[in-house]
């Protein structure tokens, strides 16, 4: 290849590089920040929905306007029903999650730390895990009655598995090279767990807690739909029975809000615990 040819190629290459690197001329266009982009569709849908409802195109008993749903939530709050039902549901989730996550931590820690415990327990727990958890409902109802216990048991089962699995797997996979460092400093088994293993598995453990909490919310809906006299799930059933779509939608929105807020809280706690480490 001659020098001239090489030069020409270089120029040509440079030309394409420049044209691809530079974004197309955007003078006169509206620039929308990426964060706002995601809002366009939901806001648009809400506005359209509101308009269609107010024009009477959407039947109110089928899909009431967003403002009607908002008003329903407001009325529930004023009447004190919101506090009562939300309080019940939150209490169920809290107790169920605490029990399930504690059991998950105990069994996850045990099977993660002791190979013998893993060989003994893990196959059975994995087998139980393959049962779709809602399938436990009839048994729980039969054994534990229709009151709180059966609901909390179901929520606990939901919260148990993600916590158990994440912790157990993470503990088994702690870098043996780090454990060797502990050995060099003659750490006792207890110190090994406290100073090396627990901090090492913390990120995975927090992920487990977050998914456990998510499942706890899912299962409280199931538990309350299948027979309850209070709770947001009960509100939904009540709304369905009495043909009030606004109540059902209000309940859906409340579940979404509570789920999101608790997840956000858990995430915040997790980030605090994890401090500055890179993950």
């Amino acid at each position: 290849m001659s020098t001239a040819e090489q030069n020409r190629r270089l120029v040509w290459k440079g030309g394409t590089a420049e044209s691809t690197a530079k974004p197309p001329d955007n003078v006169g266009r509206i620039h929308i920040p990426d964060g706002l982009l995601g809002w366009i569709i939901p806001v648009g849908v809400l506005l359209a929905w509101e308009r269609l409802a107010s024009l009477g195109i959407l039947p109110p008993n089928w899909l009431p306007a967003p403002t009607v749903v908002g008003k329903t939530i407001y009325q529930l709050a004023v009447a004190g029903d919101l506090l009562k039902h939300a309080g019940t549901t939150i209490a169920r989730v809290a107790v169920g999650f605490l029990l399930g996550a504690s059991a998950g931590t105990l069994f996850g820690g045990l099977t993660g730390y002791l190979p013998i415990a893993r060989k003994l327990l893990d196959p059975s727990l994995q087998a139980l895990r393959s049962v779709p958890s809602i399938a436990w409902v009839p048994l729980f109802l039969l054994w534990l009655g229709i009151q709180e216990t059966s609901k909390i048991a179901l929520i606990s089962v939901g919260a148990f598995f993600p916590v158990y699995l994440n912790l157990s797997v993470a503990m088994r996979h702690v870098d043996p090279k780090l454990l060797e460092v502990g050995k060099l400093y003659r750490l006792s088994s207890f110190q090994m767990v406290r100073r090396l293993i627990l901090p090492a598995v913390l990120p995975e453990y927090i992920v487990g807690l977050r998914s456990g909490l998510g499942l706890a919310w899912m299962f409280v809906v199931a538990a309350e739909l299948l027979g309850a006299s209070s709770g947001i799930g009960y509100l939904m059933v009540d709304g369905e029975m009495t043909g009030r779509a606004a109540v059902i939608l209000a309940s859906v929105i409340l579940f979404a809000i509570f789920g999101k807020v608790t997840d956000w809280g858990m995430n915040a706690v997790g980030r605090r615990l994890l401090g500055h480490r890179a993950r």
């Binding site: 460092v181 060099l184 401090g275 480490r277």
Partner: peptide, 26 residues
Amino acid sequence: PGLDRGVVFQEHRLLSWLTVHDNVGF
């Protein structure tokens, strides 16, 4: 093992959740 011998491996094997200060004092 014992504290009468210090070991440095090919990989640094520092603990990611501790500062330099706490790693050295581990």
